[in-house]
Computed example of a mutant assay.
Amino acid sequence: MIRALSDEKRPANRGRRAAAGNRAALIAAAREIYAEQGLDAPLSAIARRAGVGQGVLYRHFPDRAAVAAAVLEENVRQIEQVAAADGADIARVLGALTWHLTESAAFVGILHAEGAVSHAGVPAYASALSTRVERAVRARLPDGHRLAAHPDDLMLAVAMVAGAATGPTREHREHRARAAWRLLGVEVGPVRPVQE
Rank of each mutant, 00 (worst) to 15 (best):
I2F: 12
R3A: 15
L5F: 11
K9E: 15
R10I: 13
R10E: 09
R14H: 12
R14F: 13
R17M: 10
A18C: 00
A19P: 00
G21R: 05
A24D: 08
A24F: 00
A25H: 02
L26Y: 06
I27C: 03
A30P: 10
E32Q: 15
E32M: 12
I33P: 01
L39A: 07
L39H: 01
A41E: 01
A45C: 07
A47Q: 09
G51L: 14
Q54T: 10
G55P: 04
G55W: 06
V56I: 04
V56M: 00
L57C: 09
L57I: 04
L57M: 01
Y58I: 06
F61Y: 13
F61V: 05
R64D: 09
A65G: 10
V67M: 05
V71D: 02
V71H: 02
L72A: 11
N75S: 09
V76Q: 03
V76F: 02
Q78F: 04
E80D: 08
E80H: 03
V82I: 08
V82W: 00
A88F: 07
D89M: 06
D89S: 01
R92I: 04
R92A: 09
V93Q: 10
G95M: 07
G95P: 05
L97V: 10
T98R: 00
W99R: 05
H100W: 15
T102K: 06
E103W: 08
E103M: 12
E103G: 03
A105H: 07
A106V: 12
V108I: 14
V108D: 02
I110P: 00
I110F: 05
A113D: 15
A113G: 14
E114I: 04
G115A: 15
V117I: 14
V117A: 15
H119W: 10
H119L: 12
H119K: 07
A120L: 10
G121D: 03
P123D: 14
A124N: 01
A124H: 06
A126N: 11
S127I: 07
A128S: 11
A128L: 09
S130L: 04
V133A: 08
A139W: 00
L147P: 00
P151L: 04
D153S: 08
D153W: 01
L154M: 12
A157S: 14
V158D: 02
A159R: 09
A159C: 09
V161K: 02
V161I: 09
A162Y: 07
A165W: 01
T166P: 00
R170T: 10
R173F: 05
R176L: 15
R178W: 06
A179K: 08
R182I: 04
L183N: 06
G185S: 07
G185Q: 10
E187Q: 13
E187D: 14
G189S: 08
G189T: 09
P190N: 05
V191E: 05
V191S: 06
R192W: 02
